[in-house]
Amino acid sequence: MEQVVQQIIGGLATGAIYACIALSIVMIYQAIDHLNFAQGEMAMFSTYIAWQLMQWGMPYWGAFFITIAISFVLGYVIERAVFKPVHNAPVLSHIVIFIALFAIINSMAGFIWEFTIKPFPTPFGTKSVLGEGLLSAHGAGMIAVTGIMLGFLYLFFRYTRVGLAMRAASANPDSARLVGIRVGFMNALGWGMAAAIGAVAGIMIAPVVFLEPNMMVTILLYGFAGAVVGGLTSPGGAVFGGFAVGVIENLASFVPHFGAEMKLSIALALIILVLTLKPNGLFGRKIVNRV
């Protein structure tokens, strides 16, 4: 029993990682109505920028905020330079561009910073705050940061003009255009914000998994799972989904005989099951398509 509790808390700590990235996935989904397969690589690249800034002697929080700003600009530029010219292309072509971006960013990071893992500092420390090292200070800090981001996003999308305009631009571009919203600009803004949130996620995750070019590849997948389970239209749901995936994955290792070996498969099967029962995720709104 004690071990189960331990694994649940351990799962929550890993879940915080997934929740962080799931949040940025939902963010970009709100803004562009797409899942961005290069999201994880963008976050990884941002984290390297932060690392490089600190390497050049910048203090942690300075590097933190400058990286967020740089990432915002990079996200904005990627949308303008890469997606704007093909915004009329079919969705499947967009996905191919995501795949291309993935390949480019991943190989550029390896080319610039090599593949040797790099330690990444944490502002929260690594002391245990719960039980015998079950939840580290960094884990708690990561959960707190995710919560704060979630709060800000909620307020932003609910109550600011830009936030509402962004939602309108992605949910119904044609109508949005009719009421005078600059849809293209809103999309680019959404990319910028998603990149910035991704940067925060990367900076929070790197101290746990170590910084290297492939660090986000599988985390992104779990993040997708979390976002989809929670519902792609609900930032809160995505955070919940992220934590849920972390816990489910850890508990799967208790399945007798093959749990430890197959925990990824079990987690994935559960996700498919959730989707079959609740196709829009646990907290997602149903999207009605007109004929």
Binding site: V82, V96, I97, A100, L101, A103, S107, M108, G110
Partner: peptide, 12 residues
């Protein structure tokens, strides 16, 4: 090491 980059640019 830039193989992936070239491939991605090709695709785009």
């Amino acid at each position: 090491g830039l193989t992936g980059t070239v491939y991605g640019v090709f695709l785009i």
